[in-house]
Each structure stands twice: as structure tokens, then as C-alpha cells.
Computed example of a mutant assay.
Amino acid sequence: MFQEKGFEKTSVNDILKIVGIAKGTFYYYFKSKEEVLEAVVSEATSLLKARVQKVVKSTSDPKTKLLEAFQSMNITDVYGGNLLKDMHKPKNALLHQKSLQAILQEMTPLLTAIIEEGVQQGQFDCPYPKQLIQIILVAVATLFDEGIFQLDKQEEEQLLEAFQFLLFRQLGIEN
């Protein structure tokens, strides 16, 4: 419903019709539709976190872990590509904002741990691991936001290559 109508235009009654429950049941579990939004964001963020945690715990080298961690954050296999497209529409600004906030909060420590591991092993040279990850996450979220940039396939591939180039340079990796 939030995707189709946008958060502001979705009412609790709309949610009740789709889910097929009574209003009292809804309010037993949620105080407001804002709490439903928080639950939607929390579910998607939990999926991302579980995927990245699996990568962090792997025995791969830090460079591979970092690439795999970013790749694992693509959740279109679960939610489909339309979720991301719809999230970037102006009517879903609150959903988008809350998602970005949750991703930054949950992914920063995990990705920072990978960089710190690489620094400890002498593979990376990065004096500010946490801050670098915060900058990278915000940049990626903005640059690949279809609501801001309309990229064709070639431009998207070049942007991914530039992202990897920038990230590796900031970590002191030449190739």
C-alpha cells in the first residue's frame, strides 16, 4: 500500500482492507501507521544486516568481503526491483528517509569492521574507517537513487566501476 499510494495517502483503513483484520486487531499490534512503516523498514534492514553479517563472518580476505558485503545489500531478489523504484518517488519520501537512516545505522558498524580487519592485516590503509563507510553509503544511496539520476545500463556500469575505483583508492589499494 505504501508503495502504491504513498505513505501519506495510505490510511489505516486501507491497510485493514488488504490484511483483512479488524481495527482493534491492528491497534493491538501497532499504535499508528507510522509503526507499520517502522516495521516494514525494520524487516528489510534485518534482511540486509543478516546478509552482511554472514559476509563479515566469512573467511574471505577483507577486499573480497567488502565487495561481497556491498553485493549482498541488493535485496531485489526478495522485494523485487519495483520496491526501490517506488521508494524513490516523492510520495514515499518518508519511507526512503527512514530506510536510509536504518541502513546507515545498521550497516556502518559491519562494514567498518571489514575495513578495520583489512587495516590490521596490512591490506588497507585507512585512518578513518567509520567515516569512510558513512561517506560511501551516503554516496551510493544518492548516486544510485533513480529518483535523482536516470542512468542507462552503460552509465550504471561505469558508475559502479568508478565507485570501486574510489573505494579502493581510499583504502590504499592500487588495483
Rank of each mutant, 00 (worst) to 15 (best):
S32A: 06
K89G: 05
Q158S: 12
A113I: 08
V40A: 15
F124K: 06
K130M: 13
E157D: 11
Y27H: 03
V36S: 00
A141L: 13
I21N: 09
N92R: 08
Q123W: 15
E106Y: 08
E106S: 09
Q150N: 14
K33C: 02
L132A: 07
I173A: 02
G20D: 08
I103E: 07
K57C: 05
I136Q: 06
D125V: 11
G81S: 06
G81H: 09
S11I: 01
L166V: 13
G118E: 02
I103H: 04
K54G: 11
K49L: 02
L151T: 06
E34M: 10
Y79R: 05
D77C: 09
L47A: 09
V19F: 04
F70Y: 08
Q131Y: 09
I115F: 03
T76S: 13
F70N: 06
F163R: 14
V140Y: 14
I75S: 03
P127K: 00
F26C: 09
V140W: 13
V138C: 09
N82V: 11
Q131H: 11
E35C: 12
L132Y: 03
K54T: 15
I18L: 13
F149K: 06
F124C: 03
G80P: 13
D14H: 02
I15T: 00
K91I: 02
S11M: 05
K54A: 11
Q131D: 12
T10I: 04
A102C: 07
A93K: 12
K49N: 07
V140N: 15
T108I: 04
M87S: 04
I133V: 07
L37A: 10
L48R: 10
K85D: 15
K23W: 06
M107E: 03
E156I: 04
K9S: 06
V41Y: 04
S46N: 15
K54R: 14
V40Y: 10
Q154F: 15
E156A: 13
Q170P: 07
T76V: 14
G6N: 00
K89Y: 01
L66T: 07
A50I: 01
G6M: 00
H88K: 11
P109R: 03
I133H: 02
L110S: 04
I18Q: 15
N175F: 15
K98C: 09
L66D: 01
Y28P: 04
Q3S: 13
I114M: 04
K5N: 05
F26M: 03
P62T: 00
M73G: 05
M1Y: 14
G172D: 00
A50G: 12
E34K: 07
Q170D: 12
E4P: 14
V55K: 10
D14Q: 05
Y27R: 10
T112A: 01
E146D: 08
T108R: 02
L160F: 10
K89R: 08
E8H: 00
